[in-house]
Design a binder for these strands. Sequence first.
DNA 1: CACTTAACGCACTAACTGGTTACTTTCTTA
DNA 2: TAAGAAAGTAACCAGTTAGTGCGTTAAGTG
Lengths: 218, 218
Amino acid sequence: MTTVADPAAPVSKPRVRDAEATKARILDAAKKEFAKNGLGGARVDLISEKAKANKRMIYHYFGSKEGLFQTVLENAYVDIRTAEQKLNLDHLEPKQALERLVRFTWDYYLKNPEFITLVNSENLHRAKHLKKSEVVKVYSRKFVSMVESILQRGVAAGVFRAGIDPVQLNITIAAIGYYYLTNRFTGSIVFERDLMSKTAIEDRLAFNIDTIMRLVAC
Amino acid sequence: MTTVADPAAPVSKPRVRDAEATKARILDAAKKEFAKNGLGGARVDLISEKAKANKRMIYHYFGSKEGLFQTVLENAYVDIRTAEQKLNLDHLEPKQALERLVRFTWDYYLKNPEFITLVNSENLHRAKHLKKSEVVKVYSRKFVSMVESILQRGVAAGVFRAGIDPVQLNITIAAIGYYYLTNRFTGSIVFERDLMSKTAIEDRLAFNIDTIMRLVAC
DNA sequence: CACTTAACGCACTAACTGGTTACTTTCTTA
DNA sequence: TAAGAAAGTAACCAGTTAGTGCGTTAAGTG
């Protein structure tokens, strides 16, 4: 974000006011703060400070701390669901498609740890914010039907067994990655090994792919 | 808690002072509050009120809010690890033993939802409290070796395949139950079904047992 | 019984926290 | 270009919160 010198204007202050940019900075800072400390632990003052925006702007754009949280959460869900859709699993063989989904889910959680913490925080509050979101429901439906169609194609091709509930499968794919990562701190103590070392992370992904493949195998 | 009339003493106040009972009441109230609102969201005043103890007592016995949290968390881990040891899995056939463990883990999470929330809260704080606990490490070792011996017996009996990492298996058994339950609120929205209905809970347990059995099968 | 120890309680505070009031500055457009 | 709308700011507030100072009362002990 370097300001390129403009020969015409000696001191160029392009866009001193930019509602969209300010909003974006607030959302970005809020995502980090909420992920780090939870809804209750996050501080509005700190969010505004890190966003280099006045606290008043948060209330101007999002109404309240909870309104801000809801927007952050909604965006997080839309982000992951959008990324999933881009995988284009319909063009792959069923087995390949499923493995790719397991791999993607793991990588996404790994690269976006805020997502996990936001979801945890939302569940602590009994999903009161997500309940209000219509967008999320629409995206979720597409997501479930994506896995459903992989399963169906696999059964038709004779590589997957019949009768698997796509929702249970979905939950399981998420679970084996999510749990490992969200509990990486207590887990590293309980199991007395560094769960986040490079090899540990590779091993876990391999184990997860294996788990899912065995689950759907005939 | 009705005070039964004592003919000898007009107003009987037996055991006005009882350190152990007060401590226990505080711990019980704290467990509920921490589980409900997390470490940051829990209120010390409310804990003391619900424990019918003076707030001063919390600082007297536990030093600080975080000291109280640490004790609550430690107790929660000791509780589940103790219950696991009581399962006496060594006396069962490997397959039966493993199924029993999956079932137990699920039931325990279901009946003790505070455990999950406490662990979540602790991971939000990067396990800084659990790190200090030596007791938990000792109990954890016993727990891992329990699953290890089931696996070994199963391999020897020719019912389980060889080469499975007991830690990975342990994590997976926990994951498929834990994730489902901790995310039951957002999950019920995303998947548009009540994940906590009686049949849903039964179905999930059956699915989990199946998942683990397929994972270890030859 | 005198005396020490530990349990217990009241009232207080310093720092914080979400939210607001009142105001200035910049941009857009009729 | 005048005026209104929108963006942005600083100072402030009322309620809350973890933590304490200090005094009181019951229980154990020689």
